[in-house]
Design a protein around this nucleic acid. Structure first.
Lengths: 214, 214
DNA sequence: GTTGAAAATGAATGATCGTTCATTTATTTT
DNA sequence: AAAATAAATGAACGATCATTCATTTTCAAC
């Protein structure tokens, strides 16, 4: 499952097989995101990779396994990235801001994965669905904890932190569906707008003037 | 034998054909929502209706046309419902509240349509996509206008009303993906929570204590 | 009740689907 | 360089796909 990324001082050359497996993932990611899992054939994936259909089965035993692999590794990448981000940020003055910023940046660089992860859940067989769901809940729990802490500290006014979590994540995750790099707004501007909105949606107090015009 | 549904002042009995067309729509709606457009076959739809596959083509010329019909009529129902709602509500003190409440109530009663409308856009052929997109933008424009008016009146602090529109609609439209009637929260409670959050996300001022505990 | 139209049937069309497999080719290990 | 292993080929499998159509059945209008 662990596809190694060649870091600087890496020794071993990537084997042919794992190279191809990686290209299959990339091809499937692109095609699933564009057309949807059910509408993409193994033949299309094979063509995109530049290989015969049968060859795919040297790397994945079924089409379903490709989907599971993509969705699960997306969620695990996300959680891993958050762990790293949180570890490297020492005591953020505003944990909610840290989370929102992280989420937006991470997702804006992975629009295809986001599409798949939020649209292809129904195409996962139940066992695979459960596995993905575990990771999703784990991620949601991070935000819920931040909100609950804020409530305890009296800075947030929300009553149902689980509901607020879903509301916020839905709001943020919608960005990649319409954001285009060619658009009028930069990623930083969007980040600032959403940060303000999220803040306002949960805060007991309005933004202080100092925070407002950054 | 056939019992037609008699509405109040209705004269004409529904013809057999239009009855069947309606059942095809219902069956397709249910199946598309559960499995996705691409994963549903015309045979499945026919079985659900209780008819042979070929009979479907007396009412819809292609599978694509069924999808288009469902998505387009969903959007038109939505717009029509809003017009009616707005007409019957005389000068709402808070237009944003009126919109949010309307949106939540309307969508919570149409979870299958919502699923299809936000997941099957990519399966629409470009001509059909454009038609649906026109209606969607029309709907978004309603909220944008409300926000812009609020900005002019100085009660909202948002800079990009188009972005805020998408953020709010994404937040609200996410509800049907997790809401279950059997859950702990009633539709009214959810409405109240989201109303607070939306309000906070755009307002220049925090909620007044009077509004807060309703 | 007859008649013409609408709706449904049942069978078939060619295309495409995911997957398998014996075999050949390429790569890694010894 | 030889042996062992991994990857890719090319062809095929049965199943299922959306759609068509001649025919029969059902229904609505007169």
């Amino acid at each position: 499952m662990s596809h190694q990324i060649a870091t600087l001082a890496e020794r071993k050359p990537a084997k042919k097989g794992t190279q191809t497996a990686h290209r299959v993932r990339r091809a499937a990611l692109k095609l699933f995101a564009r057309q949807g899992y059910a509408a993409v054939s193994m033949r299309q994936i094979a063509t995109e990779v530049g290989v015969q259909p049968g060859a795919l089965y040297n790397h994945f035993s079924t089409k379903q396994e490709i989907l599971k692999d993509l969705m699960l590794s997306h969620m695990r990448d996300l959680l891993e990235a958050w762990q790293e981000h949180a570890a490297n940020t020492d005591r953020p003055s505003d944990p909610l801001e840290a989370f929102v910023t992280f989420h937006i940046r991470h997702h804006l660089q992975r629009t295809e994965e986001v599409f798949i992860s939020y649209m292809e859940l129904r195409n996962l067989e139940s066992q695979n669905f459960s596995e993905v769901e575990v990771e999703r809940r784990r991620y949601e729990a991070i935000l819920t904890a931040i909100l609950e802490d804020g409530v305890k500290r009296g800075v947030y006014r929300i009553k149902e932190t689980r509901v607020a979590t879903r509301a916020i994540i839905a709001m943020l995750t919608g960005i990649p569906t319409w954001y285009r790099e060619s658009g009028m707004l930069s990623a930083e501007q969007i980040e600032a707008i959403y940060l303000d909105m999220v803040h306002g949606s949960v805060s007991a107090m309005p933004l202080s003037p100092a925070r407002k015009n950054r």
